[in-house]
Design a protein around this nucleic acid. Structure first.
Length: 402
DNA sequence: CTAGGAATAT
DNA sequence: CATATTCCTA
């Protein structure tokens, strides 16, 4: 308990990780004794990580790429090492070219390499943290090391265009409702990358919340690469509708669409986002009467599409319907009260005009009995419950008392 | 074209 | 199973 090596105190990184690969390699070449084992160890770790982030390759294309690169380089080195050790004869067969090649990597391209590796380093930290936080990746891919074979098995490379940045929110695989507030706070690395400006409660007057998630160019590239600039609906439907006969099976089974690559990145509804959503909903008079487009416009979120709002609304409605049955009035009252207060707190803290302007403000306190409910403008009701749907306040000790 | 709902994909 | 996207229809 007395002394802790600096590296350990920092985090779980093994000592050599902080170095660039080049550094690592040159260090190794000095001490050739356990070089191989070190190398292999490193490789093993990298591969482990690789397997972990494989699940997120869509979201971390760059990390995948870099990691893959790193692994390749190290493997080459490792093999070189092996041949040195066990089959010196082989070396004769190997034309000097190979050495040159490697040398190139280590020397000639040092500049580039360095840059890359440094880049890689930052990435490492990135996914290191991310992975650690997210964990729970149980994919037990039996993906054995394919040695040389897999060097090029990354088709994903082409699509690197995707934006590595996540919405500033936390992705919680926790599976809870929309978003546990608590976890929201923990997004260290991502925050680092983002410009330190703005964020959180900077909404005043015109508060346009821009989503870094979906920069128009990148995503667009992906999706519309094949089908011109118009909307896919245009082309597809136009075509299919013109010929009366068309082909019924066209969309049935296989051809549906090639959204394999084009499937949009999942919009992550951060608390902020949802908050805006709910606000807009309230202004519009409830989830039942609000239309997606209106909501979207009211939300003033940059890059948010109609469909996304629509989808969210759909779920919102579903949830708001479902909840009433489960709850007994009491708990609902409590939850509702808390939720509302929270919400209002939020709203009032930032602007002023949000909820107060609308006619349906002061009803929540009267929640004494909501036995009947399901009729009329239960938007209100639904709303309070809806809040519980997602805002579910942590059940304090024991239980609420149902 | 948009909204709403259903089918699918992650 | 929950959530997000895409498809389909009015």
């Amino acid at each position: 308990m007395g002394s802790v090596p600096p590296e350990l105190s920092l985090d779980l990184r093994p000592t050599f990780i902080p170095k660039t690969i080049t550094d690592f390699l040159s260090t190794l070449s000095n001490s050739s004794s356990n070089k191989l084992s070190l190398l292999n160890d490193f490789i093993a770790r990298l591969e482990d990580e690789f397997r972990k982030i494989d699940a997120f390759k869509r979201e971390l294309p760059l990390s995948m790429l870099l990691l893959n690169d790193a692994i390749s380089v190290l493997k080459e080195e490792s093999e070189k090492c092996m041949s040195h050790k066990f089959q010196p004869v082989l070396e004769e067969f190997i034309p000097l070219k190979k050495e040159c090649d490697d040398d190139e990597e280590e020397n000639n391209n040092k500049d580039k390499e360095c840059r890359d590796k440094k880049n890689w380093m930052s990435s490492v930290q990135l996914w290191n943290t991310t992975t650690t936080t997210t964990t729970t990746t149980n994919n037990v891919y039996d993906q054995k090391h394919h040695k040389l074979d897999n060097k090029k098995n990354e088709d994903e490379r082409q699509y690197v265009a995707e934006d590595p940045f996540q919405p500033s929110s936390s992705r919680n695989g926790g599976g809870r409702g929309f978003l546990p507030f608590s976890t929201y706070t923990s997004n260290p690395v991502t925050t680092m990358v983002l410009p330190p400006t703005k964020e959180e409660k900077e909404d005043t007057a015109m508060n346009r919340l821009s989503l870094l998630t979906a920069p128009p160019p990148a995503v667009k590239n992906l999706r519309e690469g094949c089908s011109s600039s118009g909307s896919r609906t245009n082309s597809n439907r136009a075509l299919s509708s013109s010929p009366p006969m068309a082909q019924p099976n066209l969309r049935t089974g296989s051809l549906q669409q090639q959204h394999l690559a084009s499937r949009k990145q999942r919009r992550c509804w951060s608390p902020e986002l949802h908050r805006r959503f709910v606000n807009a909903l309230q202004k519009l008079g409830g989830s039942q009467v609000a239309t997606p487009k209106q909501i979207r416009e009211l939300m003033q979120v940059d890059g948010l599409t109609n469909d996304e709002v629509k989808s969210h609304l759909q779920k919102y409605r579903l949830h708001t319907r479902r909840v009433p049955s489960t709850n007994t009035n009491q708990s609902v009252v409590v939850l509702g009260g808390l939720c509302m207060s929270q919400d209002q707190y939020n709203d009032s803290s930032k602007g002023s005009s949000s909820v107060s302007g609308s006619p349906q403000s002061p009803l929540h306190l009267a929640t004494g009995s909501q036995a009947g409910t399901d009729s009329m403008e239960d938007d209100e009701d639904a709303k309070s419950e809806s809040h519980s749907w997602k805002r579910h306040i942590h059940n304090n000790t024991g239980k609420v008392g149902v």
